[in-house]
């Protein structure tokens, strides 16, 4: 599976996205693109609109203006279902796992779109339903192995420590076999060791599965280390875009981060 990592063409193109809540502008005319196989970071101070951006891409929020082009398909109005169908998966900043379900079941939900057996077949554990369940279970076990969480597969996620929950959240997104994976602060609140683990998983996903990754992260060290290109947002506007080095040298970005007067 290990191949040369080749950055491909533009896979996701965001054009002129504006989003407002009532009178509050969360995003103002933001455009940027993501290329296939790359790791693209979105950074910015608190309240810059980073999470809103991910929510727009994954169809949770509907922008008032703008267009999303994913794999050549144009979406004026994205919704969560369309996004999932198109192959966009995401994780959440404040872990949004299904608390009452086991790790295994949580990750299995990621396969929902691929499961076709009807209600009656499921009710009687009929041939197709049973076969399907087993086939997907096997796939999910691969993900569990990959994330090294075999020992907790039957544990309800509500009982897991924070770091492991983050991993399950990633697992659930991976189970969708997404073309693009959106990670909302995957390392927030982790200690150094957990951060290293998570970085390794992200790089492995990108490398071995060839998944394109968009991530929001506050830890600049991590961002600069693992990302190919970086978008910088501030007050809902884009103030920088380019390679980590270029962004680091951008005076506007420095100003935003050092908190100089506006």
């Amino acid at each position: 599976m290990m191949g040369e990592r080749v950055i491909g063409d533009v896979i996701l193109d965001l054009r002129n996205i504006s989003l407002a809540f009532g009178g509050v502008k969360a995003l103002t005319e933001i455009s940027f693109d993501v290329r296939e196989h790359e790791i693209r970071a979105i950074i910015g101070p608190n309240g810059a609109g980073k999470s809103s951006m991910l929510n727009v891409i994954s169809g949770v929020y509907r922008p008032q203006q703008g267009e999303i082009v994913f794999h050549g398909e144009h979406f004026a109005r994205m919704n969560s279902y369309k996004a999932a169908k198109a192959g966009i998966a995401r994780t959440f900043q404040n872990i949004a796992l299904f608390k009452g379900m086991s790790v295994l079941d949580n990750i299995m939900t990621g396969r929902t779109l691929m499961m076709k057996a009807n209600l009656l077949q499921q009710a009687f554990w009929w041939g197709p339903a049973r076969r399907e369940e087993l086939a997907h279970r096997a796939k999910v076990e691969e993900i569990i192995d990959f994330l090294e969480i075999q020992h907790i597969r039957k544990t309800p996620v509500g009982r897991l420590p924070y770091g492991l929950q983050k991993r399950v959240d990633l697992g659930r997104a991976l189970a969708m076999e997404p073309r693009i994976l959106l990670l909302d602060e995957p390392m927030a609140g982790m200690n150094v060791e957990e951060k290293q683990d998570m970085s390794r998983f992200i790089l492995d996903v990108n490398d071995q599965m060839g998944t394109t990754i968009v991530l929001i992260e506050h830890d600049m060290g991590v961002v600069m280390d693992i990302s190919d290109r970086v978008v910088v947002l501030d007050y809902g506007k884009k103030i920088g875009d380019g390679s980590p080095d270029a962004v680091r040298a951008n005076p506007e970005v420095i100003q935003a981060y050092l908190g100089a007067s506006h």
């Binding site: 169809g59 949004a96 299904f98 608390k99 009452g100 939900t109 929902t112 997104a173 969708m176």
Partner: peptide, 11 residues
């Protein structure tokens, strides 16, 4: 039941 927004996001 547990988290409807997350459920929608996975399809």
């Amino acid at each position: 039941r547990d988290m409807d927004v997350a459920a929608e996001v996975i399809g």
